[in-house]
Computed example of a mutant assay.
Amino acid sequence: MNVPVWHLYPDAGQLAERLAAAIARMAVEAIAARGAFHLVLAGGHTPKAAYEVLPRLGASWQHWHLYYGDERCLAPDDLERNSRLVQDTLLAKSPIPTRQHHPIPAELGAEAAATAYTHLLPAQRFDLVLLGMGEDGHCASLFPGQEQGFAPDAPAVLPVHHSPKPPADRVSLSAARLRQTRALFFVITGAAKAPAIQRWRVGEDLPAARVGAGFDVWLDAAAWGAPAVRYET
């Protein structure tokens, strides 16, 4: 399994600032090269902080296209929805066209939403995928011991039932589709994640480790859980 590139930051605040800057830079590069920036968004506190910074750094919003790695089967305005978090942060302060914001219609139920979202995804690779990691090593809504969709012919979008974290019903891009991207950043902060990071580093077969193989992992010192040789600058 290919190892990831580890990027270490002193704290979550600095990581969020650098992440927002990297997203803005990659958007400029993608738009210049291909005329559009296709970004898959993650939920969580650290991505939220980056989304709050991004509106003052980004540009050419008319060329941004937003997607989601997973979503909870809840009402569209539920505060636990990833799309609600993005709506209240990034979208509240940036003029990305509504038609280019593609939330997962998880309120339809897992199966119907998975089918509908399959038809909304772009035919080409994403430019950047953002993912977090749970304390059990899951990413998006791909949990240990459940279907994760790593096979090349796996569906692009999976209905998820019996999630070990509530709500039980969710929708997730498959591992194979998440890896169809030019760049993938895991964004992981906090001491609670340190045990899973250590398991990843010693080669345990975690969903996050398999999805992130060969890509990039951004961490703060607490998540790294060991003395860092150097921090990113």
Rank of each mutant, 00 (worst) to 15 (best):
F186P: 00
H45Y: 07
P97R: 14
E80L: 13
R84N: 01
G203D: 07
Y67D: 06
D220C: 06
E29A: 15
Q14M: 05
A50G: 02
A213P: 13
L130P: 01
L54A: 11
P167T: 11
A208W: 01
W64Y: 13
V229H: 02
Q100W: 05
L120E: 07
S141K: 10
L8K: 04
P164V: 06
V202F: 12
G132N: 14
H119P: 01
I188D: 00
R210H: 12
V129S: 01
L206I: 05
A32N: 11
V160L: 15
I188C: 02
L121N: 10
H63Y: 15
Q62K: 15
V187F: 07
V5E: 12
L90S: 13
A75Y: 00
I188F: 01
A12W: 05
A42C: 15
L41I: 06
L79I: 07
Y67E: 06
V217M: 04
A92P: 14
P76L: 09
D216N: 11
A114I: 14
A12G: 11
P95F: 01
S141W: 08
I23L: 15
V5D: 09
P195M: 10
L54S: 09
L54M: 11
A154Q: 06
E135H: 02
L184Y: 01
D70P: 11
A123Q: 14
L19Y: 07
H161W: 06
A196V: 02
P4Y: 07
D136G: 02
T118K: 12
Q198F: 10
L206F: 05
W61Q: 05
V187I: 14
G109F: 00
Q87D: 03
H161S: 14
A27D: 03
P55E: 05
L85E: 03
G137A: 09
Q62T: 15
A12S: 14
V171R: 03
R210I: 13
R230Q: 15
T46I: 13
D153C: 08
A123P: 09
D70V: 12
A114N: 14
K48N: 10
T118F: 05
G13S: 11
L173P: 03
G69A: 15
L79P: 02
E135P: 05
A228E: 10
V229M: 05
I96A: 08
R125G: 01
P227N: 08
Q14W: 00
L219D: 00
A175F: 02
H119T: 11
P152D: 10
S83V: 10
D136R: 01
H45L: 15
H162N: 12
F185T: 04
K193P: 05
T233G: 13
G203F: 08
A30N: 01
T233I: 11
A223T: 00
W61L: 08
A192L: 07
L131G: 09
F143C: 03
A208L: 08
R201D: 14
A22D: 15
K48E: 14
S174R: 08
A116D: 04
L128A: 04
R177K: 13
D136I: 03
W224L: 15
F37H: 04
P55M: 09
W64N: 14
A191Y: 00
M26Q: 12
A49H: 02
I197E: 01
E107P: 00
S141G: 10
H162M: 06
M26A: 08
P55G: 08
L128D: 02
